[in-house]
Design a protein around this nucleic acid. Structure first.
Lengths: 219, 219
DNA sequence: GGGACTTTGTTCCTGCGTTCACAAGCGGCT
DNA sequence: AGCCGCTTGTGAACGCAGGAACAAAGTCCC
């Protein structure tokens, strides 16, 4: 029986993850308490917004003092499910895939890559990090064995949909897609897309919009 | 008298970039016209929303027919500033940095990496893609010479703020940050953050929230 | 030439996210 | 013990994004 509503806005969840990171850093630095203002500043958000985000977890601070760094960190760890490690599979071991497989930031945040897949025979058998690249044929079996619930797609765009279908059919419930295509997945499977060139284009557009080209524009 | 208001929402800009990609694919496939419904389906958005997004550019479709693929593509290319190639510098040539430097998707979308930097002497001088990794000391000079307006940070978190400061001081107006820290930049400099582990955490949370504890779910 | 169908562009509305501002609660000081 | 200042937590207003429905416009067919 959760006294708190089980619906936490996605935008809030994303920020909670950022708070958790900042808190970890603070804890390592020996800090015992933080105020919402300082935490908000470190996370780059509004103090009031931070308090509202945290209010979704129920009261977890002390008025007049602030938040206990360790306690809040543990609270966030629990809510975000970082405590229990989650099995992930990574499909497409190109440059980006290799980078992700090697990225240490995942292991310390409750995510563990349990298998790497690639279609290219030249890649199969290579070691990346501490895993061996496996043939794509084994995907379904490995997902079933390991119970992996998260799949990461870093394949070329052409095969991403096919990989998505196979992951979903094998039982993966959440997919993080780096391929530059919009994936269709069955109901019950979440797909989240990260498009690097879109990020760059938005950035470029904002910059260009700010300074069109010497057009008589005040500010 | 600008026919189009110069304020286009960021969310819309991000989608415009997606539309542009889809249109390019369609054009390569020989299609000459598209309806908003089909384009929206390919982009994974609502048809009405797509038309609203496109309305920010002024009328660019033909009623009863649809959109001319080539014309709309060119229109988006112009608005997003993809036509003129933009010089970018990349700082931090680890796994992720190397992947980005090699990523072909940027070059074809109006972005050109003109220099790669790293602090590690072991990295300096190595070739990644068709560029040579340069010493971080040269950062200011190279930015000035090339007039680079965009910087991409893929360094460890500890040095990201320092790199950000130097990029901003050197004249870079837009920064894409992959380091897991919140950067502070002077006014007039846009910072956009991509946090891979946050993406994974949000995904994991949504999945966990959907199925709290094996609740029967009829897809 | 006229009518009807198709598709765009627009307008309204609903809901969400964000921000501001205030009341409640706790610690420290006198 | 009482007061004061500080900080959290919450309530309300604002603005924005998303979605649905409607009118305008152009084309195809008869």
């Amino acid at each position: 029986m959760q006294p708190r509503p089980r619906t936490i806005p996605e935008a809030t969840v994303a920020r909670l993850a950022v708070y958790l990171r900042v808190l970890t850093t603070l804890a390592d630095g020996g800090r015992s308490t933080v105020s919402s203002g300082e935490l908000a500043s470190a996370a780059g958000v509004n103090p009031a917004g931070l308090r509202k985000d945290l209010s979704h977890l129920g009261p977890c601070g002390v008025r007049g003092v602030g938040y206990d760094v360790g306690a809040l960190r543990d609270r966030l760890t629990g809510v975000l499910g970082v405590g229990s490690s989650r099995a992930c599979v990574l499909v497409g071991i190109g440059n980006l895939g290799s980078a992700l497989a090697d990225y240490a930031g995942f292991g310390t945040r409750g995510f563990e890559f349990v298998a790497l897949f690639d279609a290219s025979p030249a890649r199969i058998g290579q070691r990346v990090g501490d895993l061996e690249v496996r043939a794509l044929d084994e995907l379904e079996d490995v997902v079933t064995e390991t119970g992996a619930s998260i799949g990461v797609i870093t394949t070329p765009a052409e095969v991403a949909q096919s990989v998505c279908d196979r992951l979903a059919a094998a039982g993966v419930r959440s997919i993080l897609n780096f391929a530059p295509v919009t994936l269709a997945a069955p109901a019950g499977v979440d797909v989240r897309k990260v498009d690097l060139s879109v990020e760059l284009q938005v950035l470029a557009f904002l910059g260009q919009q700010r300074v069109p080209a010497g057009v008589g524009e005040s500010a």
